[in-house]
């Protein structure tokens, strides 16, 4: 099965079995250019497994238009920010972001003016220009997360996948990052981002995919996905939800015991 020309990512019948246990079952969706899709669900619902499988990083059954590509083409199509924020060596922030240009460089080629332009733009987007020369390992956890988001942005791909990118960021940078993602979507890029903050997800994403126990239980506009019944069933919580002049306001309230 080939991806439709108007979809950035096409997944069908995607299943993953790890050590005899099915952790992902028959997942199917398409993501069109310009969509900012939030992937939500409780811990262990299969969000990370889904993203790693559709990237071809996990053995899987079923189809993913991304995993079907050869590795080099995949790196040109999608950038991936794993949940594990690993920066092994104290290399400077700018060099970490430059790693995002890896798929665009041939053999022994040095970074071109264009590569540097993408890196500078990504640094600016994530408000890192000031600390560009500092060793990335000396930054705080939230700052490192921003460096890694900038790294993924510098890869400059039509599709961006990020696993809990805003966890650990301060409120201003959480909002700014969501706005950056929304801005990229408006420019025609596609994003699939797993999130735990339902309020930010509801406000900024164009669409939500809700997962539970390895399957997609709802897929659509935030208001249609986050119904009181589903929240009770999937997250065991209640929430306040209202469309206001300021946009959709969504506030989780209580745990249902």
């Amino acid at each position: 099965m080939t991806a439709l020309p108007d979809s950035a990512l096409s997944v069908s019948q995607l299943s993953v079995t790890l050590q005899g246990k099915t952790v992902l079952r028959d997942v199917a969706f398409d993501i069109a250019p310009g969509e900012f899709v939030g992937l939500v669900g409780a811990n262990g619902a299969g969000k990370t497994t889904l993203m790693r499988a559709l990237l071809g990083l996990l053995p899987h059954e079923g189809e993913s238009s991304l995993a079907a590509l050869p590795q080099a083409a995949r790196a040109a199509q999608a950038a991936w920010m794993p949940q594990m924020r690993e920066i092994a060596w104290p290399i400077e922030v700018r060099s970490v972001v430059m790693l995002g240009r890896t798929p665009h460089l041939g053999g022994l080629q040095k970074p071109s003016a264009e590569d540097r332009r993408h890196v500078e733009a990504a640094l600016e987007r994530m408000e890192l220009t000031e600390m560009r020369h500092r060793p990335a390992t000396q930054l705080s956890g939230g700052e490192q997360a921003r460096v890694l988001i900038a790294r993924a942005l510098a890869q400059d791909t039509p599709l961006l996948l990020a696993d809990e990118p805003i966890a650990g960021l301060d409120p201003a940078h959480q909002i700014a990052t969501m706005q950056t993602f929304a801005g990229l979507a408006r420019q025609g890029k596609s994003l699939l981002v797993s999130l735990h903050d339902l309020g930010l997800a509801a406000r900024h994403c164009t669409r939500l995919i809700l997962m539970s126990e390895g399957t997609v239980v709802a897929d659509g506009a935030p208001e249609d996905v986050l119904t009181p019944e589903r929240l009770a069933q999937v997250f065991s919580i209640t929430a306040f939800c209202q469309r206001t002049g300021e946009g959709l306001v969504y506030q989780p309230l209580d745990v249902i015991r």
């Binding site: 790693r52 590795q71 690993e86 920066i87 970490v96 790693l99 890869q155």
Partner: peptide, 20 residues
Amino acid sequence: GRGLDALTLGEDAAQAMGIH
């Protein structure tokens, strides 16, 4: 060299950057 640089960000990230 280039693969080792990319591995600074972990095996998953390196693979997604096209490193075998």
